[in-house]
Simulated scan of single mutants.
Amino acid sequence: MSRDRIDERTATLNRLNDRLFKFIFASEHHKDILIRFLNSVLGEDRQIEDLDYMDREFDPFLEDGKISHFDVRARGRDGRIFHVEVQVAKEPHIFKRSLFYVMNSYVTQIRQGDSYGALHPVIFVGILNFELLEDKPQSYHSVHRLLDTETYRCYCEDIELHYLEIPKLKKLRKTPQTGLERMLSYMGGIGGVEGLKQLASRDADIERILKLEEMFVTDPQQWVGYLMRERAQTDYEHSLSEQLREAKERGLQDGLQQGLQQGLQQGLRTAREEMARNLSARGLAMDIIVETTGLSEEEIRGIVS
Rank of each mutant, 00 (worst) to 15 (best):
L212G: 07
E49I: 00
E63Y: 02
H120R: 13
M54F: 10
E44N: 11
L20W: 15
F37N: 00
I24V: 15
K171D: 14
K136F: 13
I24W: 09
R277F: 05
M228F: 14
F58I: 06
L161H: 11
D114C: 05
M275K: 08
A204V: 06
H29T: 14
E181T: 08
D78Y: 06
T270F: 09
D52G: 10
V224I: 12
D135Q: 10
R46E: 12
E28M: 07
Q266F: 04
V125F: 00
K96W: 09
D55Q: 10
S142K: 04
H141W: 01
K66C: 08
L99C: 07
M286A: 12
G294D: 09
H238S: 12
D114F: 04
F130W: 11
P92Y: 05
R15C: 04
S305E: 14
L284E: 14
E134A: 13
G79T: 03
V102K: 11
A276W: 08
V122S: 04
P121L: 01
E91F: 09
G79D: 07
L279Y: 03
R269T: 12
D7F: 14
E160L: 11
F70T: 13
A200V: 04
A271D: 06
L51Q: 01
I67R: 08
S280L: 01
D148N: 15
D114R: 03
Y186P: 02
P60H: 03
Y226G: 08
A204Q: 12
H238E: 14
R229C: 14
Y163Q: 01
Y101I: 05
T293D: 07
D254I: 05
L128H: 04
K31E: 14
L199W: 06
Q262S: 08
Y163C: 05
G188N: 06
G225A: 07
R19S: 11
D45H: 03
E299F: 00
E165D: 07
R19F: 05
V84A: 02
F58K: 09
G251D: 09
L164C: 02
D55N: 11
E299M: 02
G294F: 08
M103C: 13
V304I: 15
K168N: 02
H29P: 00
R3G: 11
K170Y: 12
V125S: 03
V193R: 14
L295G: 05
D71Q: 09
Q112K: 11
F130L: 08
G283W: 14
V72Y: 03
Y155E: 15
I33D: 07
E273Y: 10
K248D: 07
D135I: 06
G267T: 01
V217G: 05
E194R: 10
Q87C: 08
D4N: 09
W223R: 06
E213R: 03
Y236K: 03
T270W: 07
S27H: 08
I209L: 12
Q261Y: 12
E134S: 13
L132T: 00
I206A: 03
S296F: 02
R73Q: 13
Q198M: 09
E150C: 10
L147T: 10
L38M: 10
L146M: 15
P60R: 00
A89F: 15
R153C: 13
D45W: 00
G43V: 02
A281R: 14
Q257K: 11
S40V: 01
G189R: 07
Y116D: 06
